Amino acid sequence: MKKRHVGLVAAAAALALTITGCSAGGSSDTPAENTNLSVALSVNGALGDQGFFDDAETGMVELKKLGHNTTTLQADINNPAQWKSNLESLSTGKWDIAVAGTWQMVDPLTAIAAKFPKQKYLIFDAIVEAPNVASITYAQNEGSYLAGVLAATAATDTANFPLSSGSKTIGLVGGMDIPVINDFLAGFKAGAEAVDPSVNVLVSYVGAFNDSAKGYDQAMGMYNQGADVVFQVAGGSGIGVLQAAKDANKYAIGVDSNQNALQPGHILASMEKRIGNSIVLAVQSAQDGTLEWGKTVTYGLANDGVGLNYADNDNIVPDSVIKIVDGFKKQVIDGSVTVPTAF
């Protein structure tokens, strides 16, 4: 039987974030231990992307199940003024914690956190240096290292991966040419090189995270150049990459959440940044008074904050290959391999 992902929520006690002095609803008072909190998420886009935003929302759903009061505000993905307005509306004292995510929210949150110093904020996948903000980042380079190992293995092992031509060519389609996406790329290339230094890695950028048609075209171009596997790190644009894998009868790797079932038989795995779980852990830490405001916590392979999910992929990755990938994972965790980063 293949190994399956075990969520961080199940291991919350072992992975609790460090923290001090959580304030409730804009007040300087510390909530009583185990008091349920009110938590609001401001999304700089819309739910339904089957990836980044939806994964964050899974955390909010879980928090509600745990008894917390939650809400989620959505926005036009191309309307920064609305992102800022929504976050400001959550900063008036009604909500114990206002949550936002991605590099696009760094500037708005930096300004708003200074304007509302008593409000507590949580930002994920980015860092805001402010005394009332707790930041969560993810070692996407480490997770992408495993994606590179898997992609290179699939591109060189035609016996176990019959849709592969053995071309030793793989690709990565990124949303934008920005540091966080290039951090995925740095890890992905390193993982591929660890398997076979002669593997060719094609790279392109959509220029947006919501253009699935362009994502499709760029991935199809890579498949036409001989790529056997394409890793999508393009948000909503990456849905087109996964469709291209099916149409080209090749392989892809999903990102952020488990996207394997979107194109069964063609998605080898999904490199998850377990955003929803990390939000739950942060709120649980705030609830018990251990969340450290003004600090950053990073989730990587060692604490199961990133990793490959093979569930719902039609069992197209044999256990023998999963064991190989896990061997590379252990090398990163024990420090014998240091994965390069774009930061």
Rank of each mutant, 00 (worst) to 15 (best):
T70A: 01
G174H: 13
N44V: 01
A245G: 13
A282P: 04
S204E: 10
S278Y: 04
S320H: 00
L301F: 06
T298M: 12
A154V: 06
G93F: 14
V149F: 08
L17M: 14
E33F: 14
G300L: 09
E129Q: 09
G171P: 10
F209K: 06
A244D: 05
F231M: 03
P80L: 01
N313E: 14
L146S: 01
A32L: 11
N141M: 01
S91W: 12
V128F: 13
F328V: 07
D29I: 09
Y216M: 04
Y205R: 11
A113D: 11
K323H: 03
I279D: 08
V317P: 10
D49V: 00
W83L: 12
T35A: 14
G48M: 03
G171D: 13
S278T: 08
P117Q: 02
G26D: 09
L185D: 03
N69P: 09
Q218Y: 05
A208I: 01
V173F: 10
N132A: 07
K214Y: 10
V6G: 14
A126T: 13
D76H: 07
A81T: 01
G187Y: 05
N182K: 15
I316H: 07
L308P: 07
E292R: 06
V280M: 05
F328W: 14
N258G: 04
A186M: 07
A10E: 14
